[in-house]
Nucleic acid binder design. Structure first.
Lengths: 219, 219
DNA sequence: CGGAAGTCGTTAAAGATTTCACATACTTCA
DNA sequence: TGAAGTATGTGAAATCTTTAACGACTTCCG
């Protein structure tokens, strides 16, 4: 929305939540200042990249000093909209869905799973991780104005559910199924494919041998 | 290992398992040929990118025809070492770990979780998804020559377990904990941070509004 | 107070990835 | 057989991302 923020590179945007979490940790530990070098060691991102990332938001630090933890944290809190909680729906209370529901997202986080849906009558009506499970048939009726969904259904059901979510007005989907779903261009989908992540790691291990002294992490 | 394959761009390497899976689907459906355009629609990757990706391995297609599914599939099977199964250990049989154990990775896949470890005595000795659960104390003893580990323990335990895995000779870790673990430079770590993925999606939704007609998927 | 040490913000360079656009060669079908 | 259609593989351009390097300013300490 903000003109300033529309031009933040995507690579930077994806690191922001990571920075935020570590700043939060530092703040909890009572640290008052932090340098890009220290942050770099903690989050495993090159310190020049961190300084560059921060610089997109203006001059947040002080030369010769570093960054004031409290200030930086409150800045990121605003930037990441940590003050308002984004309500999320979870579709598919299988193993993975249950893992999510038990994960305490609200801690350090601006997102909260408010409602879950499943097709299995035995699960409907129960509570998992403090979240009530509704029947998938009632999706449209009970979704309300929730705009983000986590999709942890069998892949054969993915596209069908995605279509219904789109019709119900969802604007973002975190898709954990192997299916690459099709959505209108005004809906954003991020895919996280566990099998592919594992295969990619194996491929890298076999074909990109790491040398002693060479540090390579992340994807 | 192969000189040819060492120079495949990382971005390409990460898409290979995705291509492989879709080719497998096509083959199962009895399709004989496929064009980069068709593949593009299915996996949501630009067709030029697909052609470029394939071209790193040589001329796999035929002009005016496309790609022969059978040939392409068998080529990728070799390239991705689909014939030999990589044995994997899973550490931490919580909700997320259980989800993994119940996920049938071996289907369409060259990886198999062979053993799981947990600190909870109640889980030790049981089987989850056909995989036996051992006590974390026996990690070094029972890991054998397994070289890849999935880390789904509480984040406070992550670094400690990672150190033990490294000592036990592991060479790759798929880390699902929020902790950014430190390892020697000859060990590869891929981080998948569920809370961050969700936050990043929310950030993109708020700050990178999609327009009708503009297609943006994936991260 | 003054010099040494530290650290940012940024310019510029390098590196990586995607995308365009088209010559080329194959396929198809009459 | 030949013309029309199709789709690859790739040179070149565009875009995005990371990294190095350093001037400028701050802090620290004797």
């Amino acid at each position: 929305m903000d003109i300033e923020q529309t031009k933040i590179p995507q690579a930077t945007a994806k690191r922001l939540p990571l920075y935020y979490r570590f700043l939060n940790n530092l703040h909890t530990q009572g640290k008052l200042r932090v340098s890009s070098k220290e942050l770099s060691d903690a989050v495993k991102v090159d310190s020049a990249t961190i300084r560059r990332d921060f610089s997109y938001f203006g001059a947040l630090g002080k030369k010769g000093y570093g960054y004031n933890v409290e200030y930086l944290l409150s800045f990121f809190r605003k930037t990441l909209d940590q003050d308002e909680t984004t309500r999320v729906a979870l579709i598919g209370v299988g193993n993975l869905g249950t893992a999510f529901l038990n994960y305490n997202f609200t801690k350090n986080n601006n997102t909260k799973i408010e409602i879950a849906f499943d097709a299995n009558d035995e699960r409907v009506g129960s509570e998992v991780g403090g979240v009530g499970v509704e029947h998938i048939n009632d999706l449209e009726e009970k979704l309300g104005d929730i705009s983000v969904a986590i999709l942890t259904v069998p892949s054969s059901a993915a596209q069908g559910i995605a279509d219904r979510l789109v019709n119900a007005g969802i604007s973002g989907i975190l898709n954990f199924t192997p299916a690459r779903i099709s959505v209108p261009s005004n809906v954003r989908v991020h895919h996280i494919d566990l099998a592919i992540e594992l295969q990619a790691l194996v491929y890298f291990l076999k074909h990109y041998p790491l040398n002693e002294g060479e540090v390579e992490e992340d994807q």
